[in-house]
């Protein structure tokens, strides 16, 4: 059973259709990227999952029930919707203690999660003095308080420096490896590409694509890139083997379709043709995202 099920979720604000018949699922053991341009409906969807807003139609279920029906929400779902959602006059530790108290979680856990997000040295400082990166860490600490099996994080990479990004990637990966479902929304695709292994792409409130990252990016369908001083000879050999060959802007680079890396290398060796470079042409998530949503980020 998926941890989160979104079924034909629609949310309308007056004339504005924020989410339009959106359906997808989130499973445990993965970091799922919830991707879309600004205004695509990501935050609205997360709020519907968390019971903060009511869908106009459709439903959002956590462990097969509406969020407000969960018997112990804090130990089931950890969420961070905006790192700035903290009283600036409280210390980081004080903020987490108010959350822990509401959830019946012992204060010793507050110090544990502060250590996990490496905020122990700043725990008694008031939050108004925190950098954006520190606030992101504090927000993640709040989400982790109940040791939940599901994590919903809205734009957790905002404001993180490269070190923070690596830290976030590592901690989300380790949480997913523990079997948790981690749903991470973002509109900055390059930031999450190395973090997620499943992807849900939406645009204008509609589902555009869902699946494993490699399938979405189309790894096996990308051409093999070969750089050789004998492009004409290699092209002939590859085409005779049934591959489709195109040339790059540079004459010595071939883009080979319908052929594996290993087959290209083997054929070149059999015919005594030198190869200087042999690699699968990479397509970034951003490339694929723009293909799916259109250059402007809209599907309509």
């Amino acid at each position: 059973m998926p941890e989160i099920v979104i079924e034909r979720l629609t949310k309308r604000y007056g004339e504005t259709l924020a989410v339009d018949e959106l359906s997808f699922t989130v499973d445990g053991g993965h970091v799922t990227g919830f991707l879309g341009p600004n205004g695509a409906g990501k935050s609205t969807t997360l709020r519907a999952v968390l019971g903060l807003i009511r869908p106009t139609s459709g439903r959002a279920l956590v462990l097969d029930r509406p969020f407000h029906r969960l018997s112990d929400p804090a130990r089931t779902v950890g969420a961070s919707l905006d790192a700035a959602d903290v009283h600036p006059g409280r210390s980081g530790r004080g903020h987490l203690r108010t959350l822990a108290a509401a959830a019946g979680i012992p204060f010793s856990r507050v110090d544990e999660v502060l250590a996990m997000v490496e905020l122990t040295p700043a725990r008694d400082r008031r939050v108004k003095g925190y950098s954006m990166g520190m606030r992101q860490r504090l927000a993640l600490a709040g989400a982790l308080l109940g040791d939940p099996r599901i994590l919903l994080l809205d734009e957790p990479a905002n404001g993180l420096d490269p070190q923070g990004m690596r830290w976030l990637r590592d901690i989300l990966g380790s949480l997913a490896r523990e079997g948790r479902a981690v749903l991470v929304s973002s509109h900055v695709l390059a930031e999450v590409e190395q973090t997620v292994d499943e992807v849900v792409v939406i645009g204008d409130g509609r589902l555009v694509a869902q699946g494993p990252l490699n399938d979405i990016v189309g790894g096996e369908e990308r051409p093999v890139r070969v750089r050789t001083p004998h492009p004409d000879a290699l092209r002939a050999v590859l085409e005779a083997d049934g591959a489709g060959v195109a040339t790059d802007d540079r004459d010595e680079v071939l883009l080979v379709h319908h052929c594996t890396l290993e087959r290209v290398g083997t054929l070149a060796a059999e015919h005594g043709l030198a190869i200087f470079e042999l690699t699968r042409e990479a397509q970034t998530l951003e490339d694929r995202f723009l293909e799916l949503t259109g250059e402007g980020g809209n599907v309509r």
Binding site: P73, D85, A102, A103
Partner: peptide, 11 residues
């Protein structure tokens, strides 16, 4: 905006 976390923990 702490209402988010307050009402997530106590729906």
């Amino acid at each position: 905006r702490t209402a988010d976390s307050t009402f997530i923990i106590t729906p």
